[in-house]
Design a protein around this nucleic acid. Structure first.
Lengths: 343, 343
DNA sequence: ATAAATAATGTTATCGGTTACATCATTCCT
DNA sequence: AGGAATGATGTAACCGATAACATTATTTAT
């Protein structure tokens, strides 16, 4: 592997001239520029970027803490990040953290060992100590999707409360009076916000909120399936279920069908995220579309601003949602079926 | 940010001793070891790993070329890779290449710019020049999932031909005589192998192979949907469709249902990959399970062997498949329905 | 023609570690 | 006691680039 010195020698110039030819060619005379370029060509010289990064102290690496890459929504967010990062010359170090605090703290430490410049965190957890802030009082981080309550960094989020309220309102308008919710883990602010929106809409419609109709899952298909199972056991006259993501909604639909229920004739089910599958499920899923790629793109661009010291405060970007009505929600049945199964 | 010199000064030793305390503590006397450790503690010293990587010439980074991170199967492979890499102290640089040759060549170049030690390629494309081989004549790469025909590196694959044959045989045993296939892009060896297996099974059953019953997609839900649409237009008395992955199978099922067909009573559909959704679809999908995590794990471990110079030849690892029979395949109908729709 | 200004190039310290080699101290053996 | 062997520590070159500063060449102004 050739280095800058060999190129300099072959071109008959100094290493500085070679470096300049690559970094600020306008400072180099056209003739020498040609000589250097030819030498580079001839030796097939590629600058050692590890040396560049070491010397400049900027790695142009960004650690992305993803709770689970297997989640289709996150996959879209990642895609958005990748494009924005590539455009600015940054590389992403994707980490599948499985939502583990210690793992995230470990990887965040890559900032301190100069392996990365910043972090994008897709979960409401701060992997840093509070004294890790930059000159502007910000952490070298952007928090997206599920955001912290009092972040020391920019955030990108949806107005989850409003979106969940809109979805619930849609069901209320269809005449549903007994609406259940399949939510995420209790600790998540995202879950909390969507619950609040759910309650808001119930209250606005003068419907009562019933704690027994709240079922917790963990955003996977299986947990949706199991939550639906618990719902069926409760034997409440539920006619609609608001799910906090599409995967759980699809899992729930699967369970309802297994119980012989028709969706939406017997029970309406809604999701959240608008993943590709929700379009092709039977029935196609009513859901909330989130601009996933834009989440990623915005997160990266905000982070780069922070890293360049251009961000002066922790801005909060809120992206728009869109209610997508498909066929998994329909009018409330005049005579609700008995949900309980013979077992 | 403190450096090794400050630590040395505070501890009253040389930089070499500090370095040794961290790298080979057994060479340092217990007393000085304590002094150094205390100084490190006091200064909250973290070695600059960029400097380490630069000096040692080993980055411990692995570039992973993923055609699309949004694919649920690849998400599982990635997870397997992540665990294996972490266990060996390697980081993954995941790249969403969208199957673009130039993009992959670009990222493979990170090997030359000393930003990464090796590449895991999940597609049948060689992003290197053939003169990039190591001393052993191997590329610093492992090719997994969809593999090259004449790779200059280890590969990890499934016996796609055998698996596709097994699936087809399953349908033949159910009495199907007119079986269509929704395949992937023609250029892919994976598609070719699965087609061969499909043909093998037809031949073994004395069934004729009909080119008109082969429909190409690109492994997405939508392409499965569209392929099914073309199939319906053909108006052949097809009673079963072998799909080359689950996403296309689910897309196809969606289209068949839209045409009023029942799966599997009117038409059987099979998939490939056993993604999570295939368990919760309606009907649950008959498919081939691949040990996705093991693909990733094996690929990383093989790559590390290559990087350490331990691999002497391009081994080919073939992982086992499993036929998973669910409800999307059933006995061939005695009187095949007319597939063509009134339009 | 000469000084001043500007452009082009060269020299070299430096980033933060690792490690080959040198040095010094201690222990062991005869 | 003298010398070898072993152990502990220090010195300094080095990895490959960048960039501050120095130097030399060229142009411009007077």
């Amino acid at each position: 592997m050739s280095n800058i010195r060999e190129v300099a020698e072959l071109a008959g110039v100094s290493v500085a001239t070679v470096s300049r030819t690559l970094q600020q060619p306008e400072l180099v005379s056209p003739k020498t520029r040609v000589k250097v370029t030819e030498a580079i060509e001839q030796l097939n010289y590629k600058p050692n970027l590890m040396a560049v990064k070491f010397r400049s102290g900027k790695t142009h690496n960004i650690v992305v803490l993803v709770p689970t890459v297997a989640n289709v929504f996150f996959a879209r967010v990642i895609r958005g990040m990748q494009e924005a990062a590539a455009a600015e010359g940054y590389s992403l170090l994707l980490v599948n953290t499985m939502g583990d605090d210690a793992t995230e703290q470990n990887y965040a430490r890559m900032i301190h060992t100069s392996q990365a410049d910043g972090v994008v965190q897709l979960r409401a957890f701060n992997p840093f100590n509070d004294n890790d802030v930059t000159d502007e009082g910000l952490l070298p981080m952007v928090n997206a999707c599920e955001i912290l309550d009092a972040p020391k960094c920019p955030t990108v989020s949806l107005d989850n409360r409003l979106a969940a309220a809109a979805m619930t309102e849609h069901l209320v308008e269809l005449g549903h009076q007994h609406i259940a919710m399949i939510k995420g883990p209790a600790a998540s602010p995202l879950t909390r916000d969507r619950m609040l929106g759910f309650k808001d809409a119930l209250q606005a419609a003068n419907l009562s909120y019933n704690e027994e109709l709240m079922f917790a899952g963990d955003f996977t298909l299986q947990s949706g399936y199991e939550a639906a199972e618990r719902l069926l056991k409760q034997n409440h006259p539920v006619t609609a279920v608001v799910c906090e993501n599409d995967e759980m909604a699809l899992g729930a639909i699967s369970r309802f069908k297994a119980a012989g229920l028709r969706v939406p004739q017997d029970i309406s089910v809604s999701g959240f995220d608008n993943i590709a599958f929700s379009h092709y499920s039977d029935p196609p899923l009513t859901t909330i579309a989130q601009p996933a790629e834009e989440f990623g793109e915005t997160a990266i661009n905000l982070l780069i601003e922070v890293l360049k010291g251009k961000a002066k405060r922790a801005v909060k970007v809120i992206l728009p949602y869109q209610l997508i009505i498909r066929e998994s929600t329909g009018p409330a049945p005049a005579h609700p079926v008995n949900l309980s199964e013979p077992s």
